[in-house]
């Protein structure tokens, strides 16, 4: 896949814990094209955040990226030195985190923080940087950006802080933005504003691709063109958003769709929980990790780990039910 902006192959990320090795990302492969919005969806502990952090090379001991490749703009991010990675981070790939308060330094005004980042990666002078940052703040919908440039993080509300974070992520016009639960900490009405902003910016920006990590199928449905569904460190299904929502193949995706109460369906439609709990990432079940919770599991599911196989129309599922061989 030479036309892909980012091509992740067989990524393995693990963490050493007291109980044993936790394989957070267990052989994940996917790609994303320029300007595309890809959703990574799954429940807590499925490895979606660890995947995002691995791409940014933010995994620190006791964690490590243990295998695979991440080819971004033709170069493997895994092969880069720390210094080379610093040049990529923020400039070519930016990240938006769930909690804005941990991203901004509370003791400095926000404008200066963004300007500093801008100047680190460009040859811009102080004046030029400030002008660019003020433009950016205006672009993300911060009123009176000239005044707010010198405001401290705590002087912004949660929604406004997230706008500042977005300004910070986009100021260098990166090719890829990884947004990890960007609206989870926000109220619904504010979430809607931030999602609308992200959509608008992505359309006007120069072909920025977005990996949107979320547990919320609704957010992913409204934002993304393609979706990867993750379970216990594996991608179990990849398809266009419409296919995932209307014709899910993997029993986990099917179960997930049936387990959420929906506003668009009739009041009397019952939700069907997926029985059991999410697989223990340290001692995962044998074979297909979903088999203990799967109603369709048969002998092969207990012993053999399924791999992602095409099921037509670019739809891929990692499930023995769809494996014709």
């Amino acid at each position: 896949m030479s036309d892909a902006l980012l091509d992740v192959r067989d990524l393995v990320t693990r963490f050493r814990t007291k109980r044993g090795t936790l394989v957070a990302v267990d052989g994940v492969s996917f790609n994303i094209g320029r300007g595309e919005t890809l959703g990574l969806v799954g429940e807590s502990g499925c490895g979606k955040s660890a995947t995002g952090q691995s791409i940014m090379r933010l995994i620190e001991p006791p964690g490590e990226i243990a295998g695979g490749s991440m080819v971004f703009e033709g170069e493997d991010l895994r092969a880069k030195s720390r210094e080379e990675m610093r040049q990529v981070r923020g400039a070519r790939i930016a990240m938006i985190f769930q909690d804005p308060t941990t991203t901004l330094n509370p003791v400095f005004p926000v404008g200066g923080q963004i300007a500093e980042l801008f100047r680190y990666h460009t040859s811009a002078g102080p004046k030029e940087a400030k002008a660019r940052v003020i433009d950016m703040l205006a672009e993300v919908g911060i009123p009176r950006p000239h005044e707010r440039y010198d405001a401290y993080p705590h002087e912004f509300s949660g929604g406004m802080q997230q706008r500042v974070i977005i300004a910070c992520a986009l100021v260098l016009r990166p090719a890829l933005v990884i947004a990890d639960e960007p609206t989870t900490a926000l109220d619904v009405t504010v979430q809607a504003q931030i999602l609308a902003l992200l959509q608008r910016l992505q359309r006007s920006e120069t072909n920025t691709a977005v990996i949107l990590i979320s547990h919320d199928l609704g957010v992913v449905a409204q934002m993304c063109e393609r979706v990867c569904v993750m379970y216990a460190g594996n991608i179990v299904e990849v398809a266009t958003t419409a296919d995932i929502l209307d014709a899910p193949k993997h029993p986990y995706t099917v179960g997930l769709m049936q387990s959420i109460p929906r506003l668009d369906l009739d009041e009397d439609a019952a939700v069907r929980p997926i029985p059991g709990v999410v697989a223990d990432p340290i001692r995962p079940p044998s074979g297909c990790k979903f088999h203990p919770r799967c109603a369709h599991a048969f002998a092969r599911c207990y012993s053999e780990r399924p791999t992602l196989k095409a099921t037509g129309n670019g739809h891929m599922a990692a499930c023995h039910l769809y494996d014709q061989t």
Partner: peptide, 22 residues
């Protein structure tokens, strides 16, 4: 109700939400 993103492709929209914050 309008602000809630729903897991459906049938009602896909740009979020025309209310302005401002609480």
């Amino acid at each position: 109700l309008a602000a809630i993103p729903e897991p459906t492709t049938k009602r896909r929209r740009i979020f025309a939400a209310i302005e401002g914050e609480i």
